[in-house]
Amino acid sequence: MDAERYDRTRPRYPDALVERIVAAAPGRDVLDVGCGTGTAARQFQAAGCTVLGVEPDARMAEFARRSGIETEVATVEAWDPAGRRFDAVVAATAWHWVDPVAGAAKAAQALRPGGVLAAFWHAFQPPAEVLEAFATVYRRVAPDSPFRMPTTGSALDAYQMMIDKAAGGIREVGGFGEPEQWRFDWEHYYTRDEWLDQIPTQGHMTRLPPEKVAEVLESVGAAVDALGGGFTMPYSTVAVVAARTDDAA
């Protein structure tokens, strides 16, 4: 993974989401699970929080450290809180990599009573022309890949599955109140170059050789050119949030 490209191209999270999580937490000590390069962690830090990141990819963790985020290299399932307690455990576009039960159990262990667990994702849907161009070329360059870019339906549907899975893990572990769902809608305009810069950071693309990535970028770039050289992306940032109760284990 190209950590610098990832940090440069991946979108920030709505300030309103960060502010709502901070307001719901009993204090300002935050654990960022799967912090990556520190995008969300820096936003929480700017909101007055002390942030510790946990990140399994050493390259990402090193980038986060260079950007001012204290970061430990581990999966959250294997990470040892060592008696440390936090007011919020957050996971920004990362909880789908975490075992939902083991992750919720570790969050319950690390949170103070009243602390919040908040996992959130960006749901987004490029224009149909861009989606179709990507799906067509991807089928050609990676015919054996199980990944398929959906060209119909709502992007929120896939993320609702992630939220339901996360909420199920929280309920199974216990020690939390009933999970809530939050949603923040916003938009971002991408130029052709900005969108093509982000595509190689997507998980399925990181497994392709450079020449196949170039073929995908050429096809998608042509589709964006046909739209006038850019497009407005609608985003919905969706979150599942639960507060740790006093009787949590």
Rank of each mutant, 00 (worst) to 15 (best):
D193F: 04
T50G: 13
L111W: 03
F176P: 02
A91I: 05
T151K: 02
A128L: 11
R5Y: 08
M161N: 01
V137M: 15
V18H: 11
M1T: 12
R42S: 10
D193Q: 15
A118W: 03
T71Y: 09
Q43N: 07
T151N: 02
G53A: 07
T206L: 15
E172M: 07
Y189T: 12
E70K: 15
G228V: 14
P14N: 12
T93H: 07
G53Q: 08
V173G: 09
V98D: 04
P209I: 07
V98P: 01
G230S: 09
V238K: 11
W121G: 04
G38N: 07
V98I: 13
E180N: 01
Y13G: 12
R84G: 08
A24G: 08
Q202D: 07
C49Q: 05
A41K: 04
A166R: 06
A102Q: 14
E211P: 04
M60K: 12
R12D: 15
L196C: 11
D99S: 09
A167Y: 01
V213C: 07
Y235S: 10
A74M: 11
Y13D: 10
A226R: 15
I199T: 10
V216P: 08
A92Y: 05
Y6G: 10
T201N: 14
Y138N: 04
A25N: 09
L117N: 09
L196R: 13
L227H: 11
W182I: 01
C35W: 00
D157P: 00
A226T: 01
V90S: 02
A155V: 01
T151E: 10
G153W: 01
S145Q: 02
Y6R: 11
D193R: 13
M162L: 15
T245Y: 05
A88F: 06
P234N: 08
E62P: 03
Q202R: 13
P126K: 01
E70F: 06
M60T: 11
A104T: 02
P150E: 03
P126F: 01
F231C: 13
R10C: 04
P11F: 08
G228K: 12
E194N: 09
G168Q: 03
C35R: 09
V141P: 07
R207A: 14
A242Q: 09
W195G: 04
T136P: 00
R244C: 04
A25T: 06
S67L: 12
M149Y: 07
A58H: 14
A91R: 06
V98H: 02
A123Y: 00
E187F: 09
F184Q: 04
R183M: 13
H96Y: 05
W97D: 06
R148N: 00
T50M: 08
P150T: 02
R42W: 00
M149L: 15
F120Y: 14
S154L: 06
A166D: 01
S236P: 00
A135D: 07
D185T: 13
A107K: 06
P200A: 11
P234D: 09
S67C: 13
Y13M: 11
P126V: 02
K165P: 00
